[in-house]
Design a protein around this nucleic acid. Structure first.
Length: 924
RNA sequence: GGGCCUAUAGCUCAGUUGGUUAGAGCGCACCCCUGAUAAGGGUGAGGUGGCUGGUUCGACUCCAGCUAGGCCCA
């Protein structure tokens, strides 16, 4: 008997084995080895989007990197030189924030340069941590020479690109409101804001209507539009009153005046302002009021215009919203739409400036009272109380935060048609899945100008100088060049270290006024700008890469993020997208489709999965899921993946075990010497390889997974391999039929380890190492080439014939099951089967009659006419004119092959054996 | 509130341009085997196709609304 023998363990023990494999890859320097065998092949560049260097990886980042790795590994095997240079986003507010928290009180006294050093240490610490975690996933790449946004050359790239965009005229400066803490006198990011309950004034203010307004023109009484606000101190900056275009508004007549506000607020406003007697004298739409002019309630010489805005709500207030573009995000956007000024009468410390007239010098919160008093005096205040509401506060000092317009840098979307050009470039990119293009299109169409400045320390400075004399911005090719050179050499730190004169070329003078003194810009660039120039800083910079990239692969949130920032910087400078294709994936969610969160208790940590089950389980999970939508993960789902993994692993093990005595160089059997079933198997395998290759090519990995897995289950385990057992175990070791089976198994093992290597990176490597060394052309499966599709294995005619026979086999299984339930047989070898068929089917079966028993794994099969079928025979539901009758097998059980044979006992030397087995032993 | 997307058996997925009893594998149940053995084989039971309307001779497939969920805005 030739039973399988192998050291390939059934139990994967991936948590222990994978690290050994990683060590092996490190020992042979797999990444470099791949580069050297790929040299000269066409390039396929997947450009990595840089994760943020903060915290551990999570299921989302793990999935992202695994997807990328599957693509890169596939492309590499498929004949491309596909270097993968991972990157990290190292600057930005979260790191700065964390460092600041760690510093505590010391944060206030530390120098900017020292602070930046701490931020760098922080970022590098997490680069190290994440690098190790990503590598542990089996992702191969240039891990020890990644791109980092904090590297000198990379920092210089930002300056270079900024210079190009500036030169094209796309960069400009404008006021925009940002969160501002007047106590700490600093800008705050969204994440630095905490919401607390605060008590604020709640007032209705009457804006005297100056324009003639048709619906109320017959009335002589003074007319007012009534607004509601909880921040009286923002009134000095008022320039408009916003109303909802579709909402109904009313004019009411009361006590010698006409008041205008939303109909829906009539009762509440009347009650709160104590108006008992009134009459609705007119009704109209908000849209009717557009462009009406009001007198500014505080400064009678100024005007406030009525504008339309969809965000105006009717649940609170009056349906008429006080609008100060300098003090609010929505107000700001409305201001842009109507081209309104954005006065900012509040200084950095929260005091009114001269612009605020009689309130100049007052601290804004205290000014509330003065403003209310003033309004009362002018009889423009109709309600005055207090309200407790949730209000944004500074994370550091806990004081209320204000919106305050400050000068910011922008990239214009419409100067020189950047937006149009971007939209045109989008059309030239392949977006996967195809709805992705709709999303990016609508976002680019609708996005406002890109605000690229931040009032921060940890980042790349905006390379602008201001002339000390004429105050003009100075950005020229010369200044850009000097900053680029400086950053290349000393990094962006030098900006904070050196004076403007030290940075600029010696004797540099202002192009406008020839001034010699300069001041540096203190703002830094938005980190999205930084990552957005990676195509320049990485693709164009590194020799092994190319520009544009073949593909970018990120989560769908990057339509607003990296896909777009990369597009804009690329279109802005090179007039085309930096990628030929963009593939997006969904987010990782729990089994119910909910986002993972601590409070829901549904977080799956990839590091735990690796530790418990192994990275290949995670990789298989990624491959099994349809990433175009959100991807679910849960302990239960991972358990199912684990089950599937074991099936694949055991199939490998079975193949390996049965090849223990097979030497491909001497034992291989030629195709024409194969049994027909072997040819059928190779045909099926070849078809599978076609399908699988097509799936990889179209990035449909889950389709690939299901196809392969079904093949393992249906074609292999339950069919081909099951039938093969008799041949492998009982035939003479060197017999043609056994060697033929081994030849097929060997071929299959190579094909399957190859086609699954991009996914099961560790397990396929492990299985690969069990191939006979003589045929292993490469030390690692990841150095091998994509399995060759052998057209000679295709035989459609033979496949059709055998598919018919195998369908009958399925029916026989049902008949056997009935016999088993009737206790007639146990093992199918205990059965003798009679098939009753007609016509072409009969001819077919008769042609193969001697082989059928082996194919059906029973002891014997006879074919008869359908007419001869006994009454109680099994009748097929699916195949016409097919009846099957199962009997207990004749003869005795062969001790060796377990088949029931009349010939058992015939051989005097081997009393317990059938003729075949006796013959095998006699020959041995 | 807006844009894009998703909703088919317990799980992961298929379902060609609307057309006969909606498929696969896993899991589950039961059975067999004990020479892939913490394996392997067989049979079988599981679906109001998120919900509600509409178009149509006919819809899982088209349309509208709703619900739940995701990403991004506001």
């Amino acid at each position: 008997m030739n039973l399988p023998q192998t050291e390939f363990p059934m139990k994967a023990n991936l948590p222990q084995r994978e690290p050994e494999m990683l060590k092996f890859w490190a020992d042979i320097d797999l990444y470099k080895a791949i580069r050297s065998v790929s040299k000269g092949k066409p390039k396929f560049i997947l450009h990595d989007g840089p994760p943020y260097a903060n915290g551990d990886i999570h299921a989302g980042t793990a999935m992202n990197k695994i997807l990328k790795d599957i693509i890169v590994k596939y492309k590499t095997m498929a004949g491309f030189d596909s270097p993968y240079v991972p990157g990290w986003d190292c600057h930005g507010q979260p790191i700065e924030h964390n460092v600041e928290k760690q510093l505590g009180e010391k944060a206030k006294t530390i120098s900017q340069v020292d602070f930046r050093k701490l931020c760098q240490d922080y970022a590098m610490r997490y680069v190290d941590i994440q690098r190790e975690q990503f590598m542990r996933l089996g992702v191969s790449g240039d891990w020890f020479d990644p791109y980092l946004t904090l590297k000198h050359e990379y920092e210089a790239t930002n300056v270079k690109t900024f210079g190009e965009l500036y030169k094209r005229g796309l960069v400009y400066k404008r006021r925009k409101p940002i969160h501002w803490c007047v106590k700490d006198q600093t800008a705050l990011a969204e994440a630095e804001i905490e919401y607390k309950d605060e008590v604020s004034p709640s007032i209705y203010v009457k804006f005297p209507l100056k324009s003639e307004f048709e619906p109320v023109k017959t009335f002589d009484e003074p007319k007012f539009i009534v607004i509601w606000t909880t921040t009286p101190w923002t009134l000095p900056a008022n320039v408009a009153v916003a109303v909802h275009p579709e909402a109904d508004y009313v004019a009411i007549k009361t006590a010698g005046e006409i008041l205008i506000f939303a109909e829906a607020r009539l009762e509440v406003v009347a009650t709160e302002t104590g108006i008992a007697d009134y009459e609705v004298v007119a009704k109209f739409k908000g849209a009717d009021m557009e462009f009406l002019k009001c007198e500014h309630p505080l400064f009678s010489e100024k005007e406030s215009v009525v504008v339309l805005a969809d965000y105006v709500g009717l649940d609170t207030g009056t349906g008429a919203v006080h609008t100060a573009p300098g003090h609010g995000q929505e107000d700001y956007l409305t201001g842009l739409k109507y081209d309104l000024p954005a006065p900012m009468p509040v200084d950095a410390a929260g005091h009114f400036t001269k612009e605020a007239g009689q309130f100049a010098g007052m601290y804004i919160i205290k000014a509330n009272k003065a403003i209310i008093e003033y309004l009362k005096e002018k009889n423009l205040l109709s309600y005055d109380t207090e309200i407790t509401h949730s209000y944004p506060c500074c994370w550091r000092c806990k004081n209320p935060v204000v919106f305050r317009a400050t000068e910011q840098w922008f990239i214009s979307m419409d100067i020189d048609d950047l937006r149009k050009e971007a939209l045109k470039s989008i059309a030239d990119v392949r977006w996967i899945p195809d709805w992705s293009i709709r999303r990016i299109n609508s976002m680019v169409e609708g996005r406002p100008d890109w605000c690229i400045s931040r009032q921060r320390s940890w980042g790349v400075p905006i390379p602008v100088f201001y002339c000390g004399d004429c105050q003009e911005d100075v950005v020229t090719e010369e200044t850009i060049k000097s900053v680029v050179e400086l950053f290349m050499k000393d990094g962006a730190d030098a900006w904070f270290d050196k004076s403007a004169e030290e940075i600029l070329p010696q004797g540099y003078t202002c192009p406008k006024c020839s001034g010699k003194k300069f001041v540096k810009e203190t703002d830094i660039l938005d980190v999205w700008f930084e990552s957005g120039v990676s195509h320049e800083g990485v693709l164009k910079t590194r020799e092994e890469l190319k520009w544009p990239a073949d593909i970018y692969v990120e989560g769908s949130d990057q339509h607003r993020g990296w896909f777009q920032s990369s597009l804009m910087t690329s279109v802005g400078v090179y007039h085309r997208a930096p990628y030929d294709a963009v593939l997006t994936h969904g987010f990782v969610v729990d089994k119910d489709g909910r986002k993972m969160s601590k409070s829901l208790g549904n977080v799956v940590n990839p590091l735990d999965v690796i530790e418990k089950s192994g990275a290949d389980i995670l990789r298989l999970w990624v491959a099994s899921s349809d990433y175009t939508v959100d991807v679910a993960i849960s302990p239960d789902i991972l358990k199912h993946v684990g089950d599937a993994y074991r099936r694949i692993r055991n199939t490998f093990r079975f193949m390996i075990g049965n090849l223990f005595d097979y030497n491909p160089e001497t034992d291989a059997v030629a195709y024409d010497q194969f049994l027909e079933l072997d040819k059928w198997a190779l045909h099926q395998m070849t078809q599978l390889l076609k399908t699988v290759t097509a799936s990889y090519e179209s990035y449909r990995f889950h389709g690939m997974y299901h196809t392969v897995y079904n093949f393992f289950t249906n074609e292999l385990s339950s069919l081909y391999l099951d039938i093969l057992k008799d041949r492998l175990y009982a035939s003479a070791a060197g017999s043609r039929e056994r060697r033929a089976a081994q030849t097929v198994l060997f071929e299959m093992l190579q094909v399957f380890t190859g086609m699954l290597a991009p996914v099961l990176a560790f397990t396929c490597e492990e299985a690969w190492s069990y191939l006979p060394e003589a045929v292993r052309k490469t030390s690692s499966v990841h150095l091998s080439e994509w399995p060759v599709l052998n057209e000679d294995y295709l035989d459609a005619e033979l496949a059709t014939r055998w598919d018919k026979i195998l369908k009958i086999r399925d029916e026989a299984s049902k008949a056997l099951e009935e016999a088993r339930n009737a206790k007639l047989i146990g093992n199918s070898l205990e059965a003798r089967v009679e098939l009753y068929v007609d016509g072409a089917t009969k001819e077919l079966l008769e042609q193969y009659e001697p082989q059928l028993a082996q194919m059906f794994i029973v002891s014997s099969i006879d074919v008869h006419s359908f007419d001869a079928a006994p009454e109680d025979a099994f009748k097929s539901d699916t195949i016409e004119a097919l009846a099957i009758k199962v009997f207990a097998a004749r003869g005795s059980k062969c001790e060796r092959c377990w088949r029931y044979e009349d010939t058992v006992g015939e051989s005097p030397e081997h009393r317990g054996l059938c003729a075949r087995c006796a013959g095998v032993l006699a020959g041995a």
